[in-house]
Simulated scan of single mutants.
Amino acid sequence: MAEDTSDYHRGAMDIAEQTATYNLIMALTKWGSLYTAAGILFFTLLFCTGAGFMGSVVATLVLIVAGTLLLRSKPDAGAH
């Protein structure tokens, strides 16, 4: 019977780079979405309502602060 000549061994590969890339993409998506939403909110309030510039800035800052507090990374429950 022919032997398997592959160097691949299931579960033996170091996946640190893939994990780091995945975490980077997730972080960019999360924070990019927050700031995109903040930009849309700012320009919508500025041009489509009577909120004016300062009202748009205040609402946008509230969204950014709330989003930052809600989206920041939580420490692992098992880590001390």
Rank of each mutant, 00 (worst) to 15 (best):
A51E: 06
G52A: 04
I64T: 07
T49R: 04
G32N: 06
T68S: 10
T44W: 07
L70E: 01
S73P: 11
V58R: 00
A51Q: 08
W31Y: 14
G39F: 02
L24H: 10
M26Y: 07
A27K: 13
T5G: 07
R10S: 13
Y35M: 09
Y22T: 13
G78A: 15
F47P: 07
L71P: 00
S73E: 15
M54L: 12
I64H: 02
S6E: 00
G39K: 00
T49D: 06
A59C: 12
A20T: 08
F53L: 11
L45K: 07
L71T: 01
V62F: 04
A2Y: 11
D4W: 08
T19D: 13
K74N: 13
L45C: 12
A59D: 06
A51H: 06
L69A: 03
M26P: 06
I40W: 03
F53N: 05
L24G: 02
L46W: 02
E3S: 10
A12F: 15
T36V: 13
T29H: 11
H9M: 10
I25H: 13
F43Y: 14
F47A: 11
T49N: 10
M54E: 15
L61Q: 09
D76V: 05
E3H: 10
F53H: 08
T68V: 01
L41H: 03
R10P: 07
A59S: 14
I40Q: 01
A51R: 05
A16M: 11
A12W: 14
L71E: 02
L71M: 07
T68N: 05
G55E: 05
K30N: 07
C48A: 15
R10L: 13
